[in-house]
């Protein structure tokens, strides 16, 4: 361990208002910590910049999953294990349940939280593309009050988010209107478990009268932020899935993404695989329609 625990302060008020007051009192000083699966790695490597940590693991209102007629509201400190084990989430939001099952190992899933994944804002995070295609909305809370932000507007640049220094993510709401969609999730990592994605896809689609009525595509690890492929989606709307479309889609995906070479993979590989995954989704969509 490269950090000196004596240099850190950790408080655990167990009360949301107290946490928010702390954040408001010294906004850039305090760092909220829930499961710690990202922060403890930085801490252990001696790279955690903040010295003051406030525990939000033990705040009950952040750990609930509430099911309303039109939405499911997921508390920001809900773990991947909780998401995987929740019947409504698994049934109606399989892309999110799948992403939760890909993240780290079982121990990480028991501690890692959805809100933490969003706040950490890694473009390689597995659950974020799912939130994009499900039109998630996040509620941010501070002593100044609550505000709701469409998740598509949350990520603003590499590790830049809409979250202010005195704010916490309170919950994530998902509208319950995607159960009729065909969904496809695939993670491409360096190995089948405990790997950070080289590319990951969350996709939803629905066919009407033999043509695509709506396609929703989001990719991880191909841009500075988790990326929704709006242009490609628009180019698919109303089209029949046939060989000529596949070639066009491939080009459209490659135009829309901005992958890089890094320690895990190459831009060329990421671009090709991203396009392959979208094509794989379209083929699945076509097959499901045939079956229906």
């Amino acid at each position: 361990m490269r950090a000196d625990p004596a240099e850190f302060r950790l408080v655990s008020p167990g009360d949301l208002q107290v946490v928010l007051s702390l954040l408001a009192s010294e906004p850039t000083e305090w760092l909220p910590i829930a499961g710690g699966t990202d922060l403890m790695v930085l801490y252990s490597a001696g790279k955690l910049p903040n010295r003051k940590l406030v525990n939000i693991w033990n705040i009950p209102e952040l750990r609930q999953i509430e099911v309303f007629p039109d939405t499911i509201r997921i508390g920001a400190a809900c773990t991947y294990t909780a998401l995987r084990g929740h019947d409504d989430v698994s049934r109606e939001f399989p892309l999110l349940a799948a992403a939760a099952s890909w993240t780290g190992g079982i121990a990480n899933q028991n501690r890692g939280t959805l809100g933490g994944n969003i706040a950490n804002a890694s473009p390689a995070a597995d659950s974020l593309p799912a939130l994009l295609v499900y039109d998630a909305e996040v509620t941010l809370i501070s002593v100044r009050g609550n505000r709701r932000v469409a998740y598509r507007d949350f990520h603003q640049g590499y590790k830049q988010t809409a979250l202010a220094a005195d704010e916490l993510i309170r919950d994530i709401s998902l509208p319950r209107r995607f159960s009729g969609y065909v969904s496809h999730a695939r993670k491409v990592g360096a190995r089948n478990a405990q790997a950070i994605s080289k590319v990951c896809l969350a996709a939803l689609g629905i066919i009407a009268n033999g043509a695509i009525r709506d396609a929703r595509l989001a990719l991880g690890s191909v841009a500075p932020i988790p990326l929704r492929l709006h242009e490609t989606e628009r180019s698919l709307a109303g089209k029949k899935i046939e060989p000529s479309l596949i070639g066009t889609v491939r080009q459209s995906v490659e135009r829309e993404i901005r992958p890089i070479d890094d320690i895990r993979s190459t831009a060329r590989y990421r671009a090709a695989v991203a396009a392959n995954l979208v094509v794989e989704f379209l083929e699945k969509l076509a097959t499901e329609r045939t079956r229906a």
């Binding site: 890694s122 590499y158 950070i196 690890s221 890089i260 070479d261 890094d262 320690i263 895990r264 060329r268």
Partner: peptide, 14 residues
């Protein structure tokens, strides 16, 4: 063959 590649970006993806 691969295009000529400059030095890889230092931007990480974690």
């Amino acid at each position: 063959p691969p295009r000529q590649q400059g030095p890889s970006s230092t931007r990480g993806t974690t």
